[in-house]
Design a protein around this nucleic acid. Structure first.
Lengths: 208, 208
DNA sequence: CACGCAGCCTAACCACGGTTAGCCTGTGGT
DNA sequence: ACCACAGGCTAACCGTGGTTAGGCTGCGTG
């Protein structure tokens, strides 16, 4: 076999990327707990077993770590979920698929979402503008599909914009209270929200 | 007349209270814009026309200002809105009344809500626990009324807890995007949300 | 009218934390 | 085998910002 199981050679910049990822993940966890401002570089460094100053071999500044967190967690839904809205099927089914994907993504990257949701104000103006851009784009796409469903007579809501706001807030609020393996099961929440949002609130009928 | 219109005598500790209020309001505005950690005492002091050190005649610490913001904006809904759930009427109508009151409160204290929503991590552990307590209490009361509506056959939702989460997230998300006099009118949003949440999502029928 | 304190001031302290400088080492590529 | 550099370390800097000390003043109260 071409990939030996015992030795893990792992190319130089593969390890580099891993290290970066490790720092980002650890930072997200600590930021989520103590807030971005309440965490020092030395504290982050401790979590990955190096010294504070060494972090600057991976990130040029503390804010860049936060930016990395916000960027991935804001870009991924755009790249992974939005295509689902372009797939075949009725607006209702496409939205239901998006809701499922969105919630599962939120669960998978829960802490990163918490940080991105709470610490936008700690970003550089430029970085913040970029993140906001992604968010607005996402929401606009959702609104457009809601509007399409209204035109198709599938949805009974009075205003697409308002429904889209409510929909997105419901989805994103999820990361504030959901914790894996406590009280509520993920798949139950996902299917429950599909029914609450697409089935009941928007008023779609038939299988989703 | 006993209250002269021209001169405004204003007792000593009335002025004191006003000053405190002024500091809190200004702080909320600046915190909302730059984040709690991004704002210094001197910056807050500038906004009310005094020097940084003078703030300590009104608050023993910076965190106490944040605490004051969070406390009022978290306690007020408990004291003003929750009694509405105990009033006469069906669960649906009582919930509709709560939604209206909640949204109007959010609009009135918009910036304070933004701060309280984003800066919980900057509070002392003790203060944070207290605020969390108020929030959980509020949500529990909402959930109970949803459950009551289910038992009465008014609501068609499958799970009261899940519906309550969605409901509260939709309500609170409101303060993230609503700005007075831009695009959407407050009363339209309020009535739209009453229909979206109580009418459509929960499935209440009849006038709300 | 005198006293006292609320409320503001200036000055300064001091800890914390982001960041930089400069060095050492092991390793992967030539 | 050698060289370069990624990646880590120690030490130190230094601005920022929360907080304290101590003094002045003018209003409201006894």
């Amino acid at each position: 076999m071409s990939t030996p199981a015992a030795a893990v050679p792992l190319s130089r910049d593969a390890r580099t990327r891993l290290r970066r990822e490790e720092i980002v993940t650890a930072s997200a966890r600590i930021f989520a707990e103590h807030g971005y401002a309440g965490v020092g570089m030395r504290q982050i460094a401790d979590a990955v077993g190096i010294r504070g100053a060494s972090l600057y071999h991976h990130f040029p500044a503390k804010e860049e770590i936060l930016y990395a967190i916000c960027l991935t967690v804001t870009r991924e839904p755009n790249e992974e979920n939005l295509p689902l809205l372009d797939a075949a099927g009725t607006p209702a089914r496409r939205l239901a698929t998006l809701v499922r994907a969105h919630l599962r993504h939120l669960a998978r990257r829960r802490v990163e979402h918490l940080v991105a949701l709470h610490e936008l104000a700690s970003l550089t103006a430029a970085h913040r503008a970029e993140i906001d851009g992604y968010r607005r784009h996402y929401q606009r796409r959702v609104r457009d599909v809601v509007a399409a469903g209204m035109r198709a007579g599938e949805f009974g809501v009075p205003d697409a914009q308002l429904a889209a706001f409510g929909l997105c807030d419901m989805l994103n609020g999820f990361s504030n209270w959901f914790v894996e393996g406590r009280e509520l099961e993920l798949s139950d929440v996902v299917e429950g929200y599909v029914e609450l949002i697409v089935g009941r609130m928007l008023g779609a009928t038939g299988p989703l």
